[in-house]
């Protein structure tokens, strides 16, 4: 079974900006949702979302931690 890297974004209040708070490794999107919610539960988040790192499109820096397949194991 191959895990993917998912980046986790969240905001504490409705008006806050969504911030990158960390990442999780997961086998699929559903597991990533739960792992993110359970791993980053130190705050009472208003909103949290996850995105597959491979779906992030780099704009000005290739090879950075968030550039597509970098850090992906699958």
């Amino acid at each position: 079974m191959i895990e993917r890297v998912y980046d986790v974004f969240a905001r504490k209040h409705r008006g806050d900006q969504l911030s990158h708070i960390g990442y999780v490794d997961a086998l699929d999107d559903e597991m990533a949702r739960v792992y993110a919610w359970k791993t980053y539960d130190e705050e009472n988040w208003f909103e949290m979302c996850v995105i597959r790192r491979s779906n992030i499109i780099p704009v000005n820096r290739q090879g950075s931690p968030f550039s597509g397949s970098k850090g992906e194991s699958g």
């Binding site: 895990e3 999780v24 490794d25 997961a26 597991m31 792992y35 359970k38 791993t39 539960d41």
Partner: peptide, 12 residues
Amino acid sequence: PSIEAGIAISSM
């Protein structure tokens, strides 16, 4: 099976 799964089940 993974650290994340362990954290999740701990929280559960």
